[in-house]
Design a protein around this nucleic acid. Structure first.
Lengths: 241, 241
DNA sequence: CCATCTTTGTGCACGCGTTCACAAAGACAT
DNA sequence: ATGTCTTTGTGAACGCGTGCACAAAGATGG
């Protein structure tokens, strides 16, 4: 029931397609690189190549934001950096908490890419009392007991879950109850959240499995020319009754 | 979500849609959990709930694999685990190398999810000579010089890049030249690869930016009811010349 | 001021993915 | 056997995303 507005008054549309939103950070990164090299303007063709997408797609994506280009010239790099940053909400500061400071959590805390764009690690939280107080990436780890206080005091709305799978849902529930409305989940579990809460998941194992599928397909196609031994060549013929 | 690019349009891939392939690991995980609890059969409704998807979608997905269900009963858990594993190519062993043993690389090496499903960390590779010989997750790190030999000797076809952005393309080129045809890229860069090589990227920063967009949208809609200026309320009106 | 050239912005068509809704298939009880 | 009940498998409709191809807009030069 959320989307009652399909109108696009041609001036500005709030209805930016999800696929476009997912590409904006890509454009932003390419534009930032150009900006650092003091390149003043860039054509859709050049920028598309740098971002690894089709130029028509890029132009259509930008058209959702508005007409920020100049025909015959291209796009002003600095201006576009600002517009995309604003659209993505990166002109404001986003305090983020990371829950679960194991190998992955620590790696995330140390990851420079967070701080670079409006994201600030407000706190590191772990359930292990032995971790409490220990500095990771220059920040003292706090115990899970403090979770609600931390969220509330810092006005955190984005949480990162890097706990084992077993603890993820419980942590998620507490984060949501404390006021977090966006969650980035690294635990290999399906999280259930109430309406209005966004969850994105990053699953290393799943990515590898998808690669394995294509890898097998490639290998199967090769040998399909000669002896039969393809991926579907042998039916196990064993159907457990 | 992670994006796999460069897929040819309608190559004979056994006709399984890309979107379906991406969900198979999800089903497999849910089924494995059921299997461990010795649940014999499961309905599409139950399994769909466990995997966090629509039941109609799940049935259609399975229909691409074949008719493995029994009407009126559901799906045999063990049988389905085997079928999906085989389809994904997980019944064979996939040696994997991880390049770039920094915080993230070390976390990946320690991640249990890899070994659990046919993936075996064949080697850890880093450019820092000081790292060479050091054990990470029980495996001695090897120097980049050995890269080609390692790939070749172990028959590695899947590589994981966890290096800084600056080194990623170079590492990628060497991996591909040595025979790797599937790459999982954690570096925040667009990799260019020759035809026939699959790349999937996992970008922490991009995921956060997408969350920030939705977060801003949520905040904007709330305050839009009152006199508050929306997220697009103020045009900067400053067009840098 | 006009002609030409470059590049944007977008209408349109197409294909993929999702969802609905239902007939077919089998289990089970009588 | 026969009927009822459950659940699968899928035809069809729909919506979203992509890419083509071109007209419009502006720069540039004469």
């Amino acid at each position: 029931m959320a989307t009652g507005r399909n109108h696009r008054p041609a001036t500005r549309s709030r209805g930016i397609p999800e696929a476009t939103v997912a590409r904006l950070p890509l454009y932003l990164r390419a534009l930032t690189a150009l900006s650092e090299r003091s390149v003043p303007t860039v054509s859709s063709e050049e920028l598309a190549a740098a971002a690894g997408v089709n130029s028509a797609k890029l132009r259509k994506d930008f058209s959702y934001l508005g007409s920020y280009g100049t025909r015959g010239v291209g796009y002003d790099v600095e201006y576009l950096v600002y517009q995309i940053s604003r659209e993505l909400g990166l002109t404001q500061d986003w305090p983020v908490v990371i829950v679960g400071i194991g190998n992955l959590g620590a790696a995330l805390a140390n990851y420079g890419g967070f701080a670079s764009r409006g994201f600030r690690v407000a706190a590191l939280i772990d359930a292990d009392p032995a971790m409490a107080g220990k500095p990771v990436a220059g920040i003292a780890v706090q115990h899970t007991d403090e979770l609600e206080t931390i969220i509330s005091d810092n006005g955190v709305s984005i949480g990162v879950i890097a706990t084992p799978a077993g603890a993820a849902q419980q942590v998620c529930d507490r984060l949501v109850a404390a006021g977090v409305t966006s969650i980035l989940n690294f635990a290999p579990t399906v999280l259930s959240v109430p309406e209005g809460v966004d969850v994105r998941k990053v699953d290393l194992s799943i990515e590898l499995q998808i690669l394995a599928f294509h890898e097998q397909r490639k290998a199967g196609e090769e040998s399909a020319a000669q002896g039969r031994k393809g991926p579907d060549g042998d039916m196990p013929a064993v159907m457990p009754a």
